[in-house]
């Protein structure tokens, strides 16, 4: 329980600092928000009026307070470029990223756990050798290049999907997932390779432990030893990697969106950066960072659940 409370406090404090940093980062930018919004054509009085409306004449910390309060209520401000509420724009774009992240993560788990166990179990033998070589290569391929290759092979050559033919989930769920599965594969592959590499060495370490011999001495088969004894132990050090992998997956989805021309958060982010549309940039970054921190918190909880020793340490 102490462990849980401690982790929860860390979560809250981190979230607070993330919001503060993200807010302050965009305060130091030279330039005037009112100017960006109205354009250079507006008169000085008009700009002054807008500045007051936006609260830009108040002290920075007060502005932060107001911003945080609004943000908490789901009001993320208004886009300079489109004059639309940022929250609405994000809500519209977010499902694609969530779907990609979830699918990539699940693929990573589904592939790297069995293969990692296999490679660790047969370390040094042929299946392991083959996997190790493949891993080195897959890990070296940049995410967006993997995306391009997948577009070529599955899209242009095999016609399994139409590149650029993104289907919104409002039109068809199956079309939505059917299209997003390909960028998800592109993101998941390098993560799988990394996951297999880590789990392999973890399994090799665990197989040398005394409790494995004990498990055999009670009559467990090799598969039983691996699944009901070794797996849980060897996953412990991998959990941290998974948490980091999620952050990476989210970041990769921003890039892979461009490869597969998906109108998601990444496209919006890049556009907004080019247009200097700061409320949008700010909101997206706070959201993503918040998501990553929350996932880290959940992984910490997971540690507490599967590692019985942690309660005492924390």
């Amino acid at each position: 329980m102490k462990y849980l409370i401690k982790k929860f406090c860390t979560l809250i404090i981190t979230l607070f600092f993330i919001s503060l940093l993200s807010f302050l980062a965009f305060q130091v930018i030279p330039g005037d928000a009112a100017l960006s919004k109205l354009g250079t054509g507006a008169t000085e009085q008009k700009r002054e009026k807008l500045r007051r409306e936006m609260g830009l004449d108040r002290p920075v910390l007060e502005q932060y307070g107001i911003w945080l309060k609004n943000f908490g209520q789901g009001n993320m401000g208004e886009s300079y470029t489109y004059s639309l509420p940022v929250s609405e724009m994000i809500r519209e774009k977010m499902p694609a990223n969530l779907a990609i992240t979830a699918m990539s993560f699940l693929m990573m788990l589904a592939v790297s756990i069995p293969l990692g166990l296999l490679a660790g179990r047969y370390a040094g033998r042929i299946p392991d050798r083959i996997l190790t070589v493949c891993n080195q290569f897959v890990m070296a391929v940049p995410g967006f290049f993997m995306g391009i290759l997948i577009t070529c092979v599955f899209g242009l050559a095999l016609h399994w999907f139409t590149p650029g033919g993104y289907v919104s989930y409002q039109e068809s769920w199956s079309g939505f997932f059917g299209y997003l599965i390909f960028p998800s594969i592109a993101i998941a592959l390098p993560k799988c390779a990394m996951g297999v590499k880590l789990l392999r060495s973890s399994v090799i370490g665990e197989l040398g432990q005394d409790y494995v011999r004990t498990a055999y001495s009670r009559g467990n088969s090799q598969a039983q030893v691996l699944l009901s004894h070794v797996l849980k132990n060897s996953l412990l050090p991998i959990l941290t990697f998974w948490a980091l992998a999620i952050a990476d997956i989210v970041a990769s989805s921003v890039i892979l969106e461009q490869v597969f021309t998906i109108p998601g958060l990444g496209t919006l982010l890049v556009q907004s950066i080019s247009n200097r549309d700061y409320p949008v940039v700010q909101a997206i970054i706070v959201l993503i960072a918040g998501l990553v921190v929350t996932i880290n918190f959940l992984v910490d909880l997971l540690y507490g659940i599967i590692d019985p020793r942690i309660e005492l340490r924390g």
Partner: peptide
């Protein structure tokens, strides 16, 4: 485990920690 069983030197590490 049924007809022949075994106990080991290191009781610290011979049990599965999780």
């Amino acid at each position: 485990g049924k007809e022949i069983s075994m106990i080991f030197q290191e009781p610290m590490t011979s049990l599965n920690p999780v």
